[in-house]
Computed example of a mutant assay.
Amino acid sequence: MNAMRMLVTGATLLLAACDHTTPPQSAASVASVPAPATSAAKPVSHFSPPEESSIPNDDFGKQIALGRQIFVDPGRYAKAYVGNQLSCENCHLDAGRLANAAPLWGAYPMYPAYRSKNHHVNTFAERLQGCFNYSMNGKAPPLGDPVLVALETYAYWMSKGEPIGTSLPGRSYPKLSKPAMAPDYARGEKVFKSDCALCHGDNGQGQQTADRTVFPPLWGPQSFNWGAGMEQITNAAGFIKANMPLGRGNTLTDQDAWDVAYFMNAHERPQDPRFNGSIPATRAAYHDTPDSLYGVAVNGQLLGQGTAK
């Protein structure tokens, strides 16, 4: 990657599995799960998507290239549907190519699929719509919209040669074993200050250059909203462990990854679009899991109130 690509991919969050299951009434409940030892990474052979230089020079190739442009810079190429400063690449690194960063080639062959998040079988295009609604805090392009067509074309091209419906190594974020100690705000803050603040800023609001986001905001009005998959601590911890700090993935301990994921998600962000007027009722309906801090009080602050854009 060139220097700008490295900056743009200085990501931390957004588009992962967003399914939710059973809750605690407080953040401390995360500690109730028995804690296996730190997970040990083993060398794994991952699928290799085609090189970008092999994009065909024809009308189909133009759609592939457009899909890549939208993926890397949706604020420019899909502006009508984006509501924050994030790009798809912030959570799906290297233009959606990198294993263990929820690559596009890992997702495309797994659809159509039933998702408990919305209780029906989703097409890949519907999955992309969800990304705009939640991770991008925007609005979903209608099915058949040129933005969705280009993104799906890009994902299809990247996935050529893969078996359909087979979960390949590296297709999502790593699933870490539960930590020895319950994720902790104070410990997470220390990790953030030592390993994350340099890129994402002391206040977690990222960095911009010439009106372009080079390191994304991790919370606040310009980050992903409470409906995004990255608000689940499990997803955030796996992404952070494998990929952060940028260029130094797998250097944090599992415990550090859990703690800093907790710290990041213990900050307010835009409201869940499914908010029904009641934080407890919205938690019960959509965030009923120990992995979510929506509707949980942390440091005396009830999370889930949302932020204005």
Rank of each mutant, 00 (worst) to 15 (best):
M1R: 10
M4A: 15
R5M: 11
T9V: 07
A11T: 01
L14E: 09
A16K: 02
A17H: 09
T21A: 07
T22D: 11
Q25C: 06
V30D: 07
P36F: 11
P36K: 12
P36Q: 12
A40G: 10
S48E: 13
D58V: 03
D59S: 14
G67I: 03
F71R: 02
K79T: 15
C88A: 03
A95C: 05
L98D: 05
A99W: 06
W105V: 04
G106P: 00
A107I: 03
M110L: 15
Y114L: 09
V121E: 06
F124G: 00
E126P: 08
G130H: 05
G130E: 05
C131L: 10
G138K: 07
G138W: 09
P141L: 06
D145A: 13
Y156F: 15
W157S: 09
K160Y: 11
S177V: 12
P179E: 07
A180D: 15
A180V: 14
P183N: 10
D184F: 04
D184C: 07
Y185R: 13
G188Q: 07
A210P: 01
L218Q: 01
A228E: 00
Q232H: 04
L246N: 04
R248A: 07
D256N: 03
A261V: 04
A266E: 02
H267M: 10
E268W: 05
E268T: 08
Q271H: 05
R283V: 09
H287A: 12
S292C: 07
S292W: 03
Y294E: 11
K309G: 07
